[in-house]
């Protein structure tokens, strides 16, 4: 706990501290923050798509208001990714933790997207 976490919790990359960070789990703080913002952005994308699939009127309204889904869904996700990514968070997470969050959110949102797409295609 003590030494390892003391280094890891700074969340700063080695060169920022002017020394080599030897902690095998330490990652830079932006890496943790953007890992978490990635998870929020892709899950939000999947959930919004699932809601649109359940409520086709909402889908039509969104297309009229914001343009085609390939465009506005990605713009929304980019805003979330960069907007949240610059907020320092996840300082206690190591590389393994962030990797688990990235894998989990990718698989979960991928499955939600596939199910919503199939539901929409069934009409």
């Amino acid at each position: 706990m003590s030494t390892t976490h003391a280094i890891k919790d700074t969340g700063a990359p080695a060169h920022a501290a002017g020394r080599e960070n030897k902690d095998p789990e330490a990652i830079g703080r932006p890496v943790a923050s953007f890992g978490l913002s990635f998870a929020v952005a892709v899950l939000a994308t999947a959930v919004i798509f699932a809601i649109k699939a359940a409520e086709p009127e909402l889908d039509e309204w969104a297309e009229e208001a914001f343009g085609h889904a390939w465009f506005y869904q990605a713009v929304l996700a980019l805003v979330l990714f960069f907007g949240l990514g610059f907020i320092p968070m996840g300082g206690r997470l190591g590389g393994r933790g962030v990797a688990a969050i990235v894998i989990g959110s990718t698989v979960a949102s991928g499955l939600i997207i596939l199910a919503a797409a199939a539901a929409l295609a069934l009409g």
Binding site: P13, A14, N21, P24, F38, V42, F81, G94, G95, S109
Partner: peptide, 24 residues
């Protein structure tokens, strides 16, 4: 959207991730 965000996250990890020292 997932592909795009993963692709933008990748350089962040490579440039800011303390890769020489950190196995994680």
């Amino acid at each position: 959207v997932i592909v795009l965000l993963l692709s933008l996250y990748l350089p962040i990890v490579v440039f800011a991730g303390n890769l020489r020292a950190s196995r994680g």
